[in-house]
Simulated scan of single mutants.
Amino acid sequence: MVERVTLHIVDGDSARRAQLARLAFAAGHHAEIYANAEELLAHAPSGGLILAQDEPVGEGVARLLAAMMRAGHWLPVIAIADTPETTAVVRAIKAGALDYLSMPTQIAPLNAAVECAAREADTFRAQRARAAEARQRISRLSLREREVLDRLAEGCSNKAIARDLEISPRTVEIHRMKMMGKLGARHAAEAVRLRIEAAGLDSVAA
């Protein structure tokens, strides 16, 4: 049996909002409705799952997720459209949506999507937490230390970094040592992992 979840329904069409809310209650969930992303973020729910109409198709959910990221607020999102288009599905998933459904009219498909999204959300939250921590650590770096880290992540040697930045290899070593200390990284691979994790958060916000 699917656990009861609060479903936050974001849809500019009042008839569709009401239809989804009725289906949510019939499926044993609680529903809250919002006309747009601004209304959702004004209330900033701390739990549950978002069902968002992808309107305009291919753009609506990506904009919602970007707005949530700017506000520092995240809940798992399931995108919805009357007729999902492949390009729209790909864009929404890349933006961070956990699923993309045709407008549900039956309890079973809705509950299947909610159950799956709830499972994936825990993993996604953990990934985002690691990414946010990595970004916070990297923000401590000076510009030159960040340049050394970026090139280290590209697989460059100290000599190659020195040539690229027009500094001496010894100076690269000094920047690299300071960078590792600020990141709390024990070795280069750990510093590179932090850089990749922080970049992953950027891709979600894009």
Results as ranks from 00 to 15, higher is better:
R70T: 11
S157M: 02
A117D: 03
L75E: 06
D150L: 11
T171H: 14
Q136W: 08
A191L: 01
A134W: 04
K178W: 09
Y100N: 04
I78Y: 10
E59A: 07
A108I: 08
I50E: 04
R163L: 13
D122V: 15
T105W: 04
S139G: 05
R128I: 09
A121M: 14
A95D: 06
Q53M: 15
M179D: 00
G181K: 13
R17Q: 14
A26Q: 14
L40D: 09
Q106Y: 07
R151W: 04
A31D: 08
D150N: 11
P45K: 03
E59Q: 14
V77F: 09
L101W: 12
R119P: 03
R163F: 12
R22D: 14
G200S: 15
H73I: 05
V57T: 12
G184M: 03
E3M: 14
I161T: 00
E147F: 00
A206D: 11
E85M: 11
E173W: 02
V77E: 09
R63W: 07
R17A: 03
A35Y: 07
R63L: 09
T83H: 14
S142T: 15
I107T: 12
H73Y: 09
S14I: 13
Q106T: 08
A66K: 15
L75N: 09
R63M: 11
S139C: 06
R195M: 00
L7R: 13
M69Q: 10
E173D: 14
R125A: 13
A88P: 10
I167F: 06
H73G: 04
K178D: 11
V114Q: 02
M69V: 03
A121V: 10
E85Q: 15
H73A: 06
G47Y: 12
T123M: 12
A88K: 05
W74A: 09
E55C: 07
L141R: 01
H187Q: 12
A132F: 08
P76G: 05
E85C: 01
A35D: 11
R144A: 09
A81C: 07
M1P: 14
L201T: 02
L165A: 03
I80T: 12
M180C: 05
R163Y: 12
A81K: 06
L194M: 15
A162P: 09
M69A: 14
E85W: 06
I9H: 07
A62I: 10
Q127D: 07
R91V: 09
T171S: 12
R16Q: 14
I9T: 04
S142P: 12
A66V: 10
R70I: 02
V2M: 12
Q19H: 13
N158F: 02
I93T: 03
I9Q: 06
T6V: 15
I138P: 02
A112W: 08
A26I: 04
A108C: 00
R195N: 00
A92H: 02
A131G: 14
L23W: 06
Q127H: 13
A27V: 11
H43Q: 15
A27F: 10
E59D: 10
Q136D: 13
D150T: 13
R170V: 13
E85P: 03
A92P: 07
K178T: 11
A31H: 10
V5S: 04
R70N: 10
I80Q: 05
G47L: 02
V2D: 05
F124W: 10
G96L: 05
M1H: 13
A71I: 08
